Simulated assay, not measured.
Amino acid sequence: MSHALVIGAGPAGLMAAEELARAGHAVMVCEAKPSVARKFLMAGKSGLNLAKDEPFEAMLPRYFEAARPLRPILESFDAQAVQDWARGLGQEIFTGSTGRVFPRAMKASPLLRAWLQRLGSAGVAFRTNMGWQGWEGGMTVFDGPQGREAIVADVTVLALGGASWARLGSDGAWTGHLATRGVALSRFEPANVGLQIGWSDHMGKHLGHALKGVRFKAGPMSSRGEAVISETGIEGGGIYEVSRAVRLQHRLSVDFLPDLDQSTVAARLSRPRGKASLSTHLRKALRLDPVKLALAQEMARPLPQDPEALARVLKHLRLEHQGLRPMDQAISVAGGVRFDALTPGLMLKQVPGVFCAGEMIDWEAPTGGYLITACLATGRWAGRGAAAYAAEAA
Rank of each mutant, 00 (worst) to 15 (best):
S2K: 11
L5P: 10
P11N: 01
L14T: 04
G24F: 07
A26Y: 00
V29W: 02
P34F: 00
P34W: 01
A37L: 10
A51H: 07
E57F: 04
A58F: 00
Y63T: 11
E65T: 13
A66C: 11
R68L: 11
I73L: 05
L74V: 08
V82L: 12
G90M: 10
G96N: 14
S97I: 13
P103R: 09
M106C: 07
M106Y: 04
Q117I: 10
Q117G: 08
L119Q: 07
G120F: 01
G137M: 05
G137Y: 05
G138L: 01
M139V: 09
T140Q: 13
T140I: 08
G144Y: 00
G144F: 04
P145R: 14
Q146K: 11
I151H: 09
A153C: 06
A163R: 07
A163C: 10
R167A: 12
S170E: 05
D171R: 01
G172F: 01
G176D: 10
G176I: 01
H177D: 06
T180E: 15
R181I: 00
A184E: 14
S186L: 04
E189L: 12
V193E: 08
G194L: 10
H202R: 15
M203Y: 03
G204V: 03
A210V: 02
G213T: 08
F216M: 10
G219C: 10
S223M: 08
E226I: 00
S230F: 07
T232S: 13
V246H: 03
L248W: 07
H250C: 11
H250Q: 13
D255Y: 02
F256I: 05
D259F: 07
V265E: 04
V265N: 08
A266P: 13
L269W: 02
R273S: 14
K275D: 14
A276S: 15
L278K: 14
T280Q: 15
R287G: 01
R287M: 02
P290E: 12
V291Y: 00
V291N: 13
A296V: 09
R301A: 15
D306M: 03
D306R: 12
P307A: 06
A309P: 13
R312S: 12
R312W: 02
L314M: 04
L317V: 06
L317C: 15
G323C: 07
D328K: 07
V333K: 03
G335R: 10
P344F: 00
K349M: 02
F355N: 06
I361G: 05
D362S: 13
A365G: 12
G369S: 05
L371N: 15
L371G: 09
C375T: 13
C375E: 11
A377S: 15
G379M: 13
G383F: 06
A386N: 08
A388R: 15
A390F: 07
A391G: 10
E392M: 05
